[in-house]
Design a protein around this nucleic acid. Structure first.
Lengths: 236, 236
DNA sequence: CGGTGTGAAGTAGTTCACAGCG
DNA sequence: CGCTGTGAACTACTTCACACCG
């Protein structure tokens, strides 16, 4: 706790926070390709943003670039990782081991990015004992014990919608303060608990909205349309 | 249906578009509970937003409420569905039938929200012929044929990161103009093609950032943590 | 010179607060 | 009277453009 570059207490805009992991991934790719230095332009391109935004974002963390040169890939990578908090290891529990829970448990991207799945829980006792990704599926009732034992603060909900609120409540009272929710529908949590929601059908619906617009304006549309028959009638 | 309420050509803010599916889901839940009418306050609560935002959002679609009363659940539901474009049926292809592809293929929320999975494709021929959610897994090479035959304009990428760009390119040249990408990393597409990205580990990293902040300011917290030390090597 | 870092300008999104209608 | 619909005020985010420094 001596002279930190700056006390990392600066409040970073939420939009920037959401992009830092993207930059981190881009930097990792650059590092793996053997690149030692990159300009804001290069990094921005591989992260899919424009360079002004990238520089502004990085400026919230500090001045880690060299004027006239660019950024040291490894150093910047470290600084971003530290800022996000992925230099430490985060234990995670996943509740609901259906199709999605299986996919999540097997997802290697967690492990390699500072997250460790310490338990898989399911209320259905027919799933009990099954091993998924080398981890035994345990009773949801064991939640409190596991949270205590491993110091878990992040939980993932992959249950059907109907169970989500109850699972969330139980997670919160067990001490979990960050929840990633894959179940459709809103869950409510007390202040101080963060929830992020991933909803597959919402994403598709957003795409559908824009797609509908494209197809409505076809004839002189920017994209040649395949079989433009499906421009159907409105349903009842 | 003589005169359209207004030509539905109004440009709706992107932030609003992203919330319309949430309202739609909330309305569906209300309808299933037998509610016929609701106020902006009620609907906002069940959608997890505040009522001013909800009313502003709905105002972009038109005036579908009744002052002093509220909204007719079924009517509003219809208007939002029409605006999003989910009153019509959208054929979708899923490429990459690993764990995640399985979960997506089995996800019932697609079917019930205007999306129909018309094909599952995988480049790995060992997966060929397997049936997932009643749909046969076919060769990725069949993409063009399927897109043509079913008039597909929405594609889902659930492959490993390395394959995503190639799959995307192929989708675009087959005529797909909207892509939902679950593969980590940025894919680039020509203008006129929409991409939405869902990245599990990014979501977790955002949670970790906030979690780290909470824990930094703690004296008595749920988790004891040896925060910033051993911060030598970054990630694997 | 070349590329970062950043004030200033511009744009998008949210919240307020209340007029106006059923 | 109650609740919607909406200008106006505010806040957050993005982009511009250039001073500054290695």
């Amino acid at each position: 706790m001596s002279a930190r570059p700056h006390d990392s207490a600066r409040d970073i805009p939420e939009a920037t926070v959401a992009r830092l992991p993207v930059y981190l991934r881009a930097l990792t790719a650059l590092a793996e390709a053997g690149t030692e230095t990159c300009s804001s332009e290069e990094l921005a391109t591989s992260a899919g943003v424009n360079s002004a935004k990238l520089r502004k974002d990085l400026s919230y963390l500090g001045s880690y670039g060299t004027r006239g040169v660019g950024y040291d890939v490894d150093h910047l990578r470290y600084e971003i990782a530290r800022e996000i908090g992925v230099t430490q290891d985060w234990p995670v529990v996943i509740v609901g081991i259906g199709n999605l829970g299986h996919a999540l448990a097997n997802f290697s991207g967690f492990r390699s990015r500072g997250f460790r799945v310490v338990a898989l829980l399911d209320a259905d006792e027919r799933r009990r004992g099954e091993r998924v990704a080398g981890i035994e599926v345990r009773d949801f009732e064991d939640l409190e014990e596991i949270v205590r034992e491993h110091g878990v603060s992040i939980g993932v909900i992959a249950t059907p919608a109907g169970a989500a609120q109850a699972v969330s409540d139980r997670m919160v009272s067990a001490g979990i303060t960050s929840i990633l929710n894959f179940a459709p529908g809103v869950i409510s949590v007390p202040q101080g608990v963060d929830v992020r929601k991933v909803d597959l059908s919402i994403e598709l619906q957003i795409l559908a909205y824009h797609e509908q617009r494209k197809q409505a304006g076809e004839a002189t549309g920017p994209v040649a349309d395949p079989a433009g028959e499906a421009a159907a009638e409105v349903l009842a």
